[in-house]
């Protein structure tokens, strides 16, 4: 288990050593988001904006217009919800070179409760034209995403969790924006996942393998622009898809995948995610279980999807 936030802080500081145009910004949560690591090394390039997310996004856009590469961080719910229109108008519309790296995404925020559990952030950012949306699956993919975002000229949203996640990759992991990673080959069904659910899908695929079922697992870390080729290939070759994300089933990865299949190669797509409701406080484990974001929940969804495949083909 490694902390994705820790790898963000560490990687940002590394980039800061190489590129003097990188600046970091935060809204009074630098210890939590780990921009504090950058702040400690480069105090003159760190800007605490106080508890003012709208102003942070606008100021970040100004930094970008002045030739800087700002990394603006706070919790996911505030970055994407509180400041949505600033992100849309000041960052998305002029295609400003701003990197929004938000921590505390999803239900695993846990005990803080629904006020802080961002289940809509991917949908909100994905709806903005020109926005790149990345949801890394582990700490190493986080480092790769931060490096890719710094290289790319344009607005990027990267969603990180509060919790540590199991490790999938190693330090050699790279990320190309818009390209997915096939982690398991498979022919019966495909799991398309992002964030924590990538690890969970690997466990589900392993369990299914014991029963002679072959499940493909695709880490779709770049939710936008989506790797449509990989989605269409999965639809064509496995005939059924299960998406899984730590986000509501409205507007996130599941919808992004469904948009591609419905227009190009219609197959059953079962979307696993947080329900359309406000949950409650609780431990991350309890909440994930209650949402069905478990290996068992994903395997059950895969069986349902495969069953629909047979119905759809008239067998």
């Amino acid at each position: 288990m490694l902390s994705l936030r820790d790898f963000y802080g560490k990687t940002l500081a590394e980039l800061g050593r190489k590129n003097k145009d990188i600046v970091a910004m935060d809204c009074d949560l630098s210890g939590s988001t780990r921009t504090s690591v950058f702040a400690k090394e480069f105090p003159e390039r760190f800007f605490n904006m106080g508890v003012a997310e709208q102003d942070m996004m606008g100021t970040a856009a100004g930094f970008a217009a002045g030739g800087k590469i700002p990394f603006a961080s706070t919790f996911a719910i505030f970055a994407t919800g509180r400041a949505w229109e600033q992100v849309r108008q000041s960052i998305g519309y002029p295609h400003a070179n701003v990197k929004i790296v938000a921590s505390h995404g999803g239900i695993t925020v846990g005990p803080d409760g629904p006020s802080h559990q961002a289940g809509e952030d991917i949908a909100l950012m994905r709806a903005i034209p020109g926005m790149t949306v990345i949801v890394p699956a582990d700490a190493h993919e986080t480092a790769a995403a931060i490096r890719a975002a710094a290289e790319y000229d344009g607005p990027v949203y990267i969603r990180l969790p509060r919790d540590k996640f199991p490790v999938i990759y190693d330090e050699k992991k790279t990320l190309t924006i818009g390209k997915s990673t096939e982690l398991r080959k498979g022919t019966d069904v495909t799991f398309i996942t992002c964030g924590l659910m990538t690890h969970v899908a690997l466990l589900a695929a392993d369990e299914m393998g014991k029963n002679g079922l072959s499940a493909r697992v695709i880490d779709m870390a770049t939710v936008k622009p989506l790797d449509s080729d990989a989605v269409i290939a999965a639809a064509r070759e496995t005939g059924a898809i299960v998406t899984a994300e730590e986000h509501t089933t409205i507007g996130g990865l599941g919808d992004a995948v469904s948009e591609v299949t419905s227009g190009h190669f219609p197959v059953p797509v079962i979307r696993v995610g947080m329900p359309d409701t406000y949950f409650s406080s609780g431990s991350p484990e309890e909440l994930v279980e209650a949402c069905g974001l478990t290996p068992r929940g994903l395997a059950d969804a895969a069986m349902r999807a495969m069953g629909m495949k047979k119905t759809a083909s008239g067998k």
Binding site: D55, G58, T59, G62, F63, A65, G66, K68, Q86, S90
Partner: peptide
Amino acid sequence: QGLSQANGLALA
């Protein structure tokens, strides 16, 4: 939204 962006320009 303009004043925030002006601040960013001035800081840059």
